[in-house]
């Protein structure tokens, strides 16, 4: 039970943590010397980070403008350019809340590990259907410098009754079609890198569960 409890407490989102401790007077008095050292470090680091941030933003803006020019005349690609710019500029999608009535869903995993998975329950006892999963706003956000030792990839698997029925690679703005069923269908997202992955399943064809 101890281990399970630690696991649950370690998995909480900010909103869930507020629900659990929001009403508790959890003020901890800091060690004054440690606090002063912390403040000195934060004061020293902030201007450097601001300069780096401005440079990155500037480069991103230039790159977005170049790409927009390249894509002019091809209206079909404007969405992709917008998504690309969104990912470069670091916009985030909402956390996963399960599938909506129209069959769309968001997923947002702050810490997708090498083999960590995000499971999306698509349907229970669905008849044979084809799922088309299109992810917009797919973002591989570098969690820390020095972590990119391989190019980031993410794959999506369709499981039917616990077995892999189909899979595909997730690429920004591209559609993945997965086919399988009947049975209990699940979509699982796997990443090859430890990174923040954000995406929105914009369309799923077929019968979609809760």
């Amino acid at each position: 039970m101890d281990e399970r409890l630690t696991e649950v407490l370690d998995s909480l989102s900010p909103a869930e943590l507020d629900g659990l401790i929001g009403d508790l007077p959890l003020h901890e008095e800091p060690d004054r010397e440690a606090l002063e050292r912390l403040r000195a470090r934060v004061r020293g680091a902030r201007p450097r980070r601001r300069r780096g941030k401005r440079l990155r933003r500037g480069l991103a803006t230039v790159a977005a403008a170049v790409l927009a020019v390249v894509l002019l005349g091809n209206a079909g690609l404007f969405a992709t350019a917008a998504q690309w710019a969104q990912s470069v500029l670091g916009l985030e999608a909402a956390p996963i809340q399960g599938f909506r009535e129209d069959g769309t869903a968001d997923f947002h995993d702050r810490r997708v590990d090498d083999t960590a998975t995000r499971t999306l329950l698509v349907s229970e006892e669905t008849e044979g259907v084809e799922y088309r999963v299109e992810l917009s706003d797919l973002t591989f956000e570098e969690p820390r410098r020095g972590h990119w030792q391989t190019s980031p990839h993410a794959y999506i698997y369709l499981y039917v009754d616990g077995r892999t029925a189909d899979s595909g690679e997730l690429r920004e703005g591209q559609e993945v079609v997965l086919a399988g069923g009947p049975g209990t269908c699940l979509l699982v997202v796997v990443s090859t890198v430890r990174a923040e992955i954000t995406g929105t399943v914009t369309r799923i064809y077929g019968e979609v569960g809760p």
Binding site: T115, H147, T150, Y157, G162, V188
Partner: peptide, 20 residues
Amino acid sequence: DMVSLEDSPLPAEKGSPEGE
């Protein structure tokens, strides 16, 4: 920090989706 997808266990080997 990194392992290739080929070298890493796939979800099916780590536990069933139902289990998750």
